[in-house]
Design a protein around this nucleic acid. Structure first.
Lengths: 156, 156
DNA sequence: ATCCTTGCAAATTGTTTGCAGCTAG
DNA sequence: CTAGCTGCAAACAATTTGCAAGGAT
């Protein structure tokens, strides 16, 4: 499950100071905004949201901060929605969720499935690999006549 | 299983002529080179290989041809190796394979697993979607001390 | 003082497009 | 001829980088 911003931010500060790096106002702000979004923001969207709170933050800083957060393993990246990099806060525990995305409206749902993960593990072993990570995205369509999530698409 | 170039190329010609499009020498050459590579070539590599046989073929033609082949469903695209688009010949039947990629050497292995696909189907249904497609990539490491595929990496 | 960070602008990278000439039917 | 196709160069979009100035320790 996702934890509190407080906790996540402490984690961030701790990891930064370990490398003589600083939790600057810009970084804290970007982290805050990213955390507030439940997930899958791209750099442009994030930058705009950040600017609403501090108009002086530059594009490059958002890029650099996200890359930093990624190397600290505090956010995860994916590019499956529209090719541009999108970010989401990494979960605290070692749990891993995958994504199901609607081809009609672009709505993204998250899910976990231990059974599949187990099979992935055994596939890897059978092929002589130690499984480190995986990415899985299901593409589908709402089964209703009118895509139930179509509203969600227009908002983005 | 993958079929013969002959067959695949006929398929290409047929689909092209259906839309008053032509199987030009350039397109045939690109198709040939792509087919010869077992898979996962990017545009740059492909372009260089093509140029070895015909130095006059332009970059844009390679891009356009690949996009064309993709819309005709004769090749598949993926970007999971290094972010750049990579291509592989689409399989004849409706079988679908996924990829296992070594974090150490970048070697790509393919596999099929019906059990996982079945579970994906049921996950989608449970969430109210009709499953259309999926992408799955496993990231691992060779279990040997020396990555067994390291040589393959240096060649790319 | 030192060294991390920032904002800006310029540079890169991967990919797409406009256009004039060429080619097949 | 007409329409599709090509190569080139220019255009684009996403991301990265160099640099001089600002700020924390």
């Amino acid at each position: 499950m996702t934890h509190s911003f407080q906790h996540w931010c402490n984690e961030l500060e701790r990891k930064l100071s370990r490398n003589q790096q600083r939790l600057t106002p810009q970084r804290r702000l970007i982290a805050d905004v990213l955390f507030a979004q439940s997930g899958h923001v791209n750099v442009d969207e994030l930058h705009q949201l950040v600017r609403q709170r501090d108009g002086s933050v530059g594009y490059a800083t958002v890029y650099r901060t996200l890359k930093l957060l990624e190397t600290l393993d505090l956010v995860h990246t994916n590019t499956f929605v529209d090719g541009t990099a999108r970010y989401e806060v990494a979960s605290d525990d070692d749990s891993h969720h995958d994504h199901l995305i609607c081809r009609d409206c672009g709505y993204v749902t998250e899910f976990e499935n231990a059974e599949i993960e187990q099979l992935q593990e055994s596939v890897a072993v059978r092929l002589g690999f130690e499984l480190v990570d995986h990415r899985m995205v299901l593409y589908g369509r709402c089964t209703k006549v009118d895509c139930a999530h179509r509203d969600a698409a227009t908002k983005s």
